[in-house]
Structure formats: structure tokens, C-alpha cells
């Protein structure tokens, strides 16, 4: 055991937590008993577990998921504990799936609870508990399982990707983007990883509504340095989607018009790239949030 710890330390990591031990044992939560052994899917094995949508997990940073089924009488539950690469990755998945959050009063961590499913995020863990039968009586069990898991998770500082964005975004619209799958959910600028986020650069995006520009999306990405940010803008300009027409490309600013006659712009200031999409009118010079808005 000591040797294993030393070996892990030599590799620069820490011994992996057995996530199955974080999930309730038999009888530990509302009398639920485990139905079979926990299954673990690591890395690309996630495709063997998720029925569509695994790519976004892998893009933002996925390590493994531990899946445990439970039974109590007629009720059947499944708990899925996703160990993500970092708290921002966990929050990214939570935000993409939580919809209009409907929390249960009995649970302190950020979560949303319903009859069929409970989703929770804490640190680098994203937890989904599913009520497989859909029985109304099964819904409280979801909370019990989530509470038991959350109690075993260490307290970590919550990710705050939205700190780079100006206040006032529309509720529920905050998203974290680290690659083309996440970006594609918001806007199509071109094929592939057109913003060159590479799974490592974190962008925050949200929807805003103002009288002049209408309802639109603002995305802010901070690259490692100014050269990388400028290279990303240049890559977009060179590979702009065929459905978009460039209106102006002046050094660090690119303005385009989309197929529906709406506008978008990208601008670089230092290492920050700002994208606004779906603008009701030609925006003129884009407003770039200052870097000191970042925490």
C-alpha cells in the first residue's frame, strides 16, 4: 500500500479514490440495496455507457464514471458518479444538463431535483441519480442517495467560469466551452475546433438581451497568451463557415453577417478573445470586457 502511494507520488499524482466507496452501501440510504456490482467506465469507455452525448464529457475533461444500481421494493435507481478533470469540467456538464434548476430543500450542494432525475455538482464530481421506474414514490430516494454521496465528497472551491462575463446574463444560459462540441451548441463559426480551444482553453458563454443588439450570445475565452488569442481569431477568419459572410476583418476584429442577416463579431484584446453571436444589428466596434474582470 505504501509502495503504491509512493509510486503514485513519484508519478506526480495521488492514489485514485475508489469512487464506489462514495456511493451508498446496502441500507445506508433509505433502505436501498445495491443491485449488482458497480461498473466503472474510464476515458473513451464512456461511449459504452452514455446513450449519446459522451463527446462533451470527453471534451471538457472526463476521467471516469462509476455506475451503481439500487433497489428498494418496486423502486429502482441508478447512481452515476462522474469524476471530471477539474471543478470547471464538472460544472460544465452540470450546466449543460440542469435546465431550470429545481432544488430540493433537503440538499445543500448545487443541484436540481425532479421525479425522474437528480443532478448535483460538487468540486470535480458530477452526480446523476436516476429514478428508473419513474414512480413518484422513488423521487425522495434520489435526494437520499445524493445527500449520502455529497457528504463523502470533500469541500472544494466552486468553479466560477462566469466571472469573466459581465453581469446580467439570462438565467440558465451560462455555459462552459472547451472545444467544438460545446461551441457548436451555441454557434457555428466553421468546421472542427475553429476557435482552437483544444480542450484546455476555457471559454465562458451566456445569453444576454438588450434593446440595441437583441438577444445574443457572448463568449469570452482567455488563451495562454496574446499570440494564441490572435492565432485563434486568424484561424476563424481563414476558416469561416460558408453560411457566414465577413463584413470587416481589421486586425484584431472580425465582423460577420450570418445566413439570417444577423451579425456576429470576434475581437482580441491581449490574451482574451470575445465573441458575440446572433446580434440583431451590425455592432460597430465590439465591447471587450477587460481582463481584470477575471477572478
Amino acid at each position: 500500500m505504501i509502495a503504491a502511494i509512493l509510486f503514485a507520488a513519484l508519478l506526480g499524482g495521488t492514489p485514485a479514490v475508489d469512487d464506489a466507496t462514495l456511493l451508498p452501501a446496502d441500507g445506508a440510504a433509505a433502505g436501498l440495496t445495491r443491485d449488482g456490482a458497480a461498473e466503472v467506465f474510464r476515458g473513451a469507455e464512456l461511449y459504452g455507457h452514455i446513450d449519446g452525448g459522451a463527446e462533451i464529457y470527453l471534451e471538457v475533461g472526463f476521467e471516469r464514471v462509476t455506475v451503481q444500481r439500487y433497489r428498494r421494493g418496486e423502486d429502482e435507481l441508478t447512481a452515476e458518479l462522474y469524476r471530471m478533470s477539474d471543478p470547471t469540467a464538472a460544472l460544465a456538464i452540470y450546466l449543460s444538463r440542469c435546465g431550470d434548476e429545481t432544488p430540493d430543500a433537503g440538499l445543500a450542494e448545487r443541484h436540481t431535483a425532479g421525479r425522474h432525475q437528480l443532478l448535483l455538482v460538487k468540486g470535480g464530481v458530477f452526480l446523476a441519480v436516476n429514478n428508473d421506474t419513474g414512480r413518484a414514490k422513488g423521487a425522495p430516494l434520489l435526494v437520499e442517495v445524493a445527500r449520502a454521496v455529497a457528504a463523502r465528497l470533500p469541500d472544494e472551491a466552486a468553479a466560477a467560469p462566469g466571472a469573466a462575463l459581465p453581469a446580467g446574463w439570462l438565467p440558465g444560459s451560462l455555459r462552459v466551452v472547451r472545444g467544438p462540441v460545446g461551441l457548436g451548441a451555441i454557434v457555428t463559426l466553421g468546421d472542427g475546433d475553429v476557435l482552437r480551444l483544444g480542450g484546455t482553453v476555457t471559454a465562458a458563454a451566456a445569453a444576454y438581451d438588450d434593446g440595441r443588439l437583441g438577444r445574443h450570445t457572448l463568449l469570452v475565452a482567455d488563451y495562454p497568451d496574446a499570440a494564441a488569442a490572435r492565432a485563434a481569431l486568424a484561424h476563424v477568419a481563414a476558416h469561416l463557415d460558408a453560411a457566414l459572410t465577413p463584413v470587416r476583418h481589421d486586425g484584431d476584429v472580425l465582423v460577420y453577417r450570418d445566413w439570417a442577416g444577423r451579425f456576429g463579431d470576434l475581437a482580441v484584446a491581449d490574451r482574451r478573445l470575445t465573441l458575440r453571436a446572433n446580434l440583431a444589428r451590425d455592432p460597430g466596434l465590439p465591447a471587450t470586457p477587460p481582463l481584470d474582470a477575471q477572478p
Partner: peptide
Amino acid sequence: AVTASGVVLGVPALAD
């Protein structure tokens, strides 16, 4: 996963 994934499965996430 295969039948359901549509836009995601088989897509190299970070490649053009």
C-alpha cells in the same frame, strides 16, 4: 450510444 449519439459519436472532438 451508437444509435443514439447522432452528432457526437464517432466525431473526433478536436480535429478538423
